[in-house]
């Protein structure tokens, strides 16, 4: 626990819940493990905002949660790229409320032209675009002879590569390399893409995953993240072979540097 508490931490992948009790529970875990700030978004991946009314409601939940715990939480907005007008308005509203980035789900693949104008907004705001990504046989166009009948528009590593090349000035966060997918595949995919970052979130805590990510992506492109799996989140980074300086970067500095670009950095 001494080792746990030694590092300042920003959880680059937090989950806010409508229920205040659950939010309080998250804060309790964060306290237990010395996590200073959680970057929140709503909803969880299986549900997605289908209409402007829905995604606005989700964002309201985040705003509420952040208001309750202003020193512990920071928010990411969500939207539906098909409703461009409403989405652009929502970006304005939410960043006005202090949100620090965007979490995109699987209504469209991240490299779908529909998403372009949204991405361009975030280039302007210098904020990161956090996207649910998966790397699994039979998902999102990857080796579909193994089709597992998941949402077809889930973004896969190749989609990130494609959009990152199109928008080299945008910042993308491939969500949760510990989310159960093939993290070797994901990390190898992003080797030559300096504007793709990964977070270490997810319930999987494979030995060597964090080392492998750093080896392939460098020590600046990996964020500590939990996706509500707090023990694994901290354990996998501490168990890695990274130096203390590298761990500091992963736990805190790397994400804070992203926040700083939009003037939202922590002191």
């Amino acid at each position: 626990m001494k080792d746990v508490m030694k590092y300042r931490k920003i959880d680059a992948y937090g989950n806010a819940y409508a229920d205040d009790k659950l939010a309080a529970g998250q804060i309790a875990y964060a306290d237990r493990l010395g996590i200073e700030r959680l970057i929140l978004s709503v909803p969880v991946a299986k549900q997605m905002g289908k209409t402007p009314v829905e995604f606005k409601a989700y964002n309201d939940l985040v705003i509420l949660a952040v208001k309750r715990y202003p020193h512990r939480l920071a928010g990411q907005l969500t939207l539906h790229p098909a409703y461009l007008k409403e989405s652009l308005e929502e970006i304005k509203r939410c960043t006005g409320e202090g949100m620090t980035g965007m979490k995109l789900y699987n209504q469209f693949k991240i490299n779908d032209p529909v998403v372009y104008p949204v991405i361009e907004q975030f280039i302007h705001y210098k904020m990161i675009i956090h996207v649910h990504g998966e790397s699994q046989l039979g998902v999102g166009g990857y080796r579909m002879k193994y089709d597992v009948d998941n949402t077809p528009a889930i973004s896969v590593p190749e989609d990130f590569m494609d959009i990152a090349k199109r928008y080299p000035e945008a910042m993308f966060q491939y969500a949760h390399i510990g989310g159960g997918g093939d993290w070797e595949y994901a990390c190898k995919s992003f080797r030559g893409y300096p504007n793709i970052y990964v977070d270490t979130g997810g319930s999987n805590n494979d030995e060597n995953m964090v080392d492998f990510a750093v080896e392939n992506l460098g020590e600046d492109r990996v964020f500590f993240g939990c996706d509500s799996s707090f023990y694994q989140g901290v354990g996998k980074v501490l168990a890695s072979g990274l130096t203390e300086i590298q761990k500091r970067k992963i736990f805190f500095d790397n994400y804070n540097n992203i926040l700083k670009r939009s003037g939202c950095g922590l002191g």
């Binding site: 080796r143 590593p157 070797e184 595949y185 994901a186 190898k188 995919s189 080797r191 030559g192 392939n216």
Partner: peptide
Amino acid sequence: PIYAGWQYD
């Protein structure tokens, strides 16, 4: 050749 990053490898 159907796995990520093979060209680099």
